[in-house]
Computed example of a mutant assay.
Amino acid sequence: MNVSHHPYRTYRTTVARREQLSPSFLRMTLTGPDLVHFGTAGLDQRIKLVLPLPDGSFTDVGQFDESVGMMEWYRRWRELPDEARNPIRTYTIRAVRPETREIDVDFVLHGTEGPASAWASAAGPGAPLVVIGPDARADETGGLEWNPGDAGSVLIAGDETAVPAICAIVESLPAHVTGSVYIEVPTEADALPLAAPEGVAVRWLARRSAAHGLRLSAAVHAWGETRVAETTTSAADAPTGTELADPNEDEVLWEVPEASVGSCYAWLAGEASTITALRRHLVRGLGIDRRSVAFMGYWRRGRAEAA
């Protein structure tokens, strides 16, 4: 009998190991028997982390029952009172090892105000964590945004929240691809080892005391100036598909082309206002077709993530 599996499922995990990668980055290796079925798509694969309540518990809304659909238990979760609703946060998987029933998730440490950073700062081996992630047995996949098509040149830009996705993407790039990668991080010590193809330049941008996004924006604008000097394409004679409306501040800032066009593909992720401004510059200012620009507002300054 054929069994149909949902693209995403709930995994009970515990912390196996923790590794401090840099002052701001902490890698948590999670383990659990069901991780043998965890999907291994890689790249910018999104997952959800369900964090424990202050007493370490997880309210059961049916998330562990495979007969209950994700939308149903999510509805129940939303109806819970605040004190019974486990925080849910979106992360990118860093590595998957189904043969050893392990996954790696990298956390950005920024104090204890946010539930995920607070949990990661204190959790030791054996601490429980619930993960909503892909099921390798499912016919469908989801949660992947990287889609460069046949583009031979890439622009990748993001802040520290995008580091796990950027690292996984860069490590997967074919040898013939060329391009530029800009990663804004809190300090110089947060630059991580990253193997890139010979034609792909990676720059870690230490923010230090500068405003969030300032150094990333400056780097992408400088990239644009070089591009303009090397090409005759401008915003005035840009190809079709570049029409761009300014998003409402309450909208989810997330647009990913179904199929990239052209020879250059841009992938932008991080703080929403910074990423929105960079996308606007690429499309309106430089005339890059919007169908070649993927942009994702991972978080918005001053606001908690809406699960």
Rank of each mutant, 00 (worst) to 15 (best):
G149K: 00
R17H: 02
A165D: 10
W77V: 10
A277G: 12
S217K: 14
P134G: 10
E66H: 15
T233W: 11
P148E: 08
P186L: 07
S22H: 05
E249P: 14
T161F: 04
T14G: 08
G42T: 09
S24V: 08
G287T: 10
A122D: 10
F38Y: 04
T240V: 14
R18N: 00
I93K: 05
G152W: 02
V283E: 05
F107S: 14
V36M: 01
A41W: 06
M296G: 10
S117F: 02
A138I: 01
A116N: 09
A157K: 11
P257S: 11
R18F: 00
N248H: 15
G39K: 08
G270H: 06
D250V: 13
G56V: 15
E184V: 09
A238P: 01
P23M: 05
R279C: 02
A211L: 12
I88G: 13
A127S: 11
T178A: 06
E249A: 06
G149S: 02
D246Q: 07
G262N: 03
A235E: 10
V130T: 15
D104I: 04
A238D: 06
D55W: 14
R94M: 05
Y182H: 14
P148L: 06
E79F: 08
V96S: 09
A229M: 06
E83F: 04
E66V: 15
T178K: 06
M296V: 15
I156T: 04
Q20H: 14
A165M: 07
R301F: 08
T31Y: 00
W146Y: 11
P197E: 01
P197C: 01
W254C: 13
L144E: 04
G297S: 07
A157N: 10
Y74D: 11
C167Q: 10
A219W: 05
Y298P: 02
H221D: 10
G285I: 12
S292D: 01
W73D: 07
L129F: 06
A84P: 08
E113V: 14
S180L: 00
C264F: 10
P87Q: 13
G179M: 03
G124K: 00
P23E: 04
S172K: 09
V130E: 09
N147K: 12
T231Q: 05
R27T: 00
T10N: 02
P98L: 06
D60H: 08
E184Y: 09
D246S: 11
I288R: 13
Y298L: 10
T274R: 11
P52D: 12
I156Q: 04
A269Q: 09
A269G: 13
R94V: 08
V185F: 07
R215D: 14
R9Y: 00
I93C: 05
A151G: 11
T141E: 02
D60E: 14
G149Q: 02
G262E: 03
S263H: 04
S172F: 04
E160Q: 05
E251I: 09
L53C: 15
S67R: 13
Y298V: 03
L80Y: 09
G32N: 03
R78V: 13
L21P: 15
P54R: 11
H37I: 00
L43W: 02
S24N: 09
H212R: 12
P81W: 03
W254S: 13
A206S: 11
P128H: 07
S234C: 09
T40C: 06
G285T: 10
S153N: 03
L109Y: 02
I47W: 07
L43R: 04
A41C: 02
D60Q: 09
A304L: 14
G285W: 13
